[in-house]
Design a protein around this nucleic acid. Structure first.
Lengths: 364, 364
DNA sequence: CCTGTAAGAGACACCGGTGTCAAAAGCAAG
DNA sequence: CTTGCTTTTGACACCGGTGTCTCTTACAGG
């Protein structure tokens, strides 16, 4: 091997690039420095885009980096920076599609950054929830955490993040007071819009299948429902409200209850798609034609919505965009200037009503 | 503060526990060492369960750890150990539920270990797939990678892992030759069993909706189908095979094709649930009663299977167990003795046929 | 009581980066 | 060609752990 540039520093550890490659080990910053003929600190400056570097030096270093295929060791950086480059996604969502879409949005946002994503499902029901999360956060020390509903509604969790100095963004169905820590959709408005459509189509008796008690999303959706009916001057008799928990079986129960009424509703709004699927199977079982005899609307636009027959009119939640937005809001300083959230960027993303085949005009 | 045990070593950095807590910083191994009156190396020995430690010393250290709430910094450990404690889950699966269930299984397995899970969706279609994965693996340097189907079928990806010295386990629908790197189900057998049931119920013309060309899972399922019909001495006319790609819309197309035949099948086996849902909606649209006039079987036991009406008979894939098993096979040496996979543990996990309401006896 | 031996604990270097600060280099003005 | 200033670079310590090797210590045997 003929004389190479820069072996000017003696280093016990230095090995020629070829040997390194063969050894299967990653080249380190020292190897780059040696090859480029500069100090490791200078290489570090190039990696971190320091401004105090001449173009000539920068180019030499960049070439060496390329030649060796050098990739900075994230663990070492994390240690030296006294912070790591992880963000955590905490979720406890029964809807896998939602979680994965959100995750995808987050990854879109951090794609060109140094960040990596740690995904952590948690158990909402467990009484060790807070301890589990605390252990996780203390161990991994992510820069920030994204909280997906329903656990995003847990104030203790947010407090825990504060306490541990972990940034957080809560994702929800309506803006929180503390808008810096929240990215949300506008469930109330869009439900009101969807239910308004039912009213326009002549429906006067409209059933409502609730979400689980205590869930903000459930409350928001119900508020939207109330709003639409009140605006239309319609009554809200108790018998048209069925309890639910976002599960298919709850939809079955709700369908049985509502469709057995002396005067059954001609349309039913369900707080999510799974329950709508449940209501729809009850209708099928009873020989009630959808949408001719019964219109049904769901919420989520989950895969189920298009897999059932007839295809379900529902509300599409911009979950992937919300993931991207949430990540931007969480770690704007780690993203590049183009990806970064503008300060004035809205943290409320509109959901949209998607019309399919499960809705029709009320029979006269 | 009265004289504490062990401030015997002078350390510029040492701060009293109380002060540390207030500062919001994590205590380090040095703090523990100082409090316990031992060297940091001894603390390290306790953390790593070295055997060369007296009970007395161990207890003192453990008490100090507890008192300070010390948690070892994973980045520092990773650096010192020259390996990190991450495992990666690479997936490109349209079925979110599958991914999440698998992920849950992996987390079950690594729960009590030092390992963390990095989830990485990839784009099978992209021509940059290999580069993307290479960049990811070089940057994060996980100990190992779990490959979910369908990308687990990509041999180049496996070769890449070999090259980079990253362990890997491929998850699939049938054992690979290289059994050490594979955890699988037994799709062929269970499909044969399910289709056998149809034959027993008197079905003679049974349609088959294929999975995407080139997918091992699709091939295995088709093999099982052939096997069952051949065993029963039935013919396999081409017209009863419809192409598919695991998507709902393909199920629609397949349903249209098969149910428009001069002599339509009395039962259809679909290579996954989504396509089965498509076939079922076509049947509904045509006024063909399921299961009275047409039996349908799917594969995956996805949420869709129970959300459609009538509920779909399908094949349940033990995906969560497979996640657990795969993790055990990947990093047995990082799991404790109870969790660890026994060497002789089988890497083939049986799928089961789940009978619901979409299958009935053939009409005479 | 002394010695030999093995187990336990400590000192120090090191993993691969970054922060700090001082030295070197570059450049304009005297 | 100096001087004085600013810009760029390097030496060295440090982040929080672990590996290696040496030194202590405890205890059994002579």
């Amino acid at each position: 091997m003929p004389d190479q540039p820069g072996m000017h520093r003696k280093s016990r550890n230095f090995m020629a690039p070829r040997t390194r490659e063969k050894s299967g080990k990653q080249p380190t910053i020292n190897d780059v420095a040696a090859l480029a003929g500069v100090s490791k600190k200078t290489v570090s400056r190039v990696i971190n885009r320091s401004e105090f570097i001449t173009d000539k030096t920068r180019q030499a270093v960049e070439q060496a980096i390329k030649m060796l295929g050098f990739v900075p060791n994230p663990q070492a950086r994390a240690l030296a920076f006294r912070r790591n480059f992880l963000i955590a996604l905490l979720h406890d969502n029964p809807n896998a599609q939602t979680v994965l879409n959100f995750q995808q949005g987050v990854l879109d946002a951090i794609k060109d950054s140094d960040l990596a994503l740690l995904v952590r499902p948690v158990d909402r029901g467990s009484d060790r929830l807070l301890d589990d999360v605390r252990t996780f956060l203390e161990k991994q020390r992510p820069i920030g955490a994204l909280l997906l509903p329903p656990i995003s509604e847990n104030d203790e969790l947010a407090a825990l993040c504060e306490e541990l100095g972990v940034r957080y963004v809560r994702v929800g169905s309506a803006p929180l007071d503390d808008v810096r820590h929240c990215v949300s959709s506008n469930d109330r408005e869009v439900v009101a819009e969807a239910v308004g459509k039912l009213v326009e189509l002549g429906h006067r008796r409209i059933g409502f299948v609730r979400g689980p008690v205590g869930f903000r999303s459930a409350a928001e959706r119900e508020k939207g429902f109330h709003e639409a009916l009140t605006t239309a001057g319609l009554a809200l008799p108790d018998e048209l409200f069925a309890p639910g928990n976002y599960r298919y079986t709850a939809g079955i129960d709700a369908g049985e209850a509502l469709l057995s009424l002396a005067e059954p509703p001609t349309a039913i709004f369900c707080s999510n798609d799974e329950m709508a699927a449940g209501v729809m199977s009850v209708a099928h079982g009873k020989g009630i034609a959808v949408p001719t005899d019964l219109s049904i609307i769901g919420f989520d636009d989950s895969p189920t919505a298009t897999h059932i027959w007839p295809a379900l009119s529902t509300v599409r939640w911009p979950i992937r965009e919300m993931g991207m937005r949430a990540a931007r809001a969480l770690v704007p300083d780690f993203l590049d200037i183009n990806t970064r959230a503008a300060d004035e960027e809205s943290h409320v993303l509109p959901s949209t009503f998607v019309e399919r085949q499960s809705v029709a005009a009320a029979k006269r």
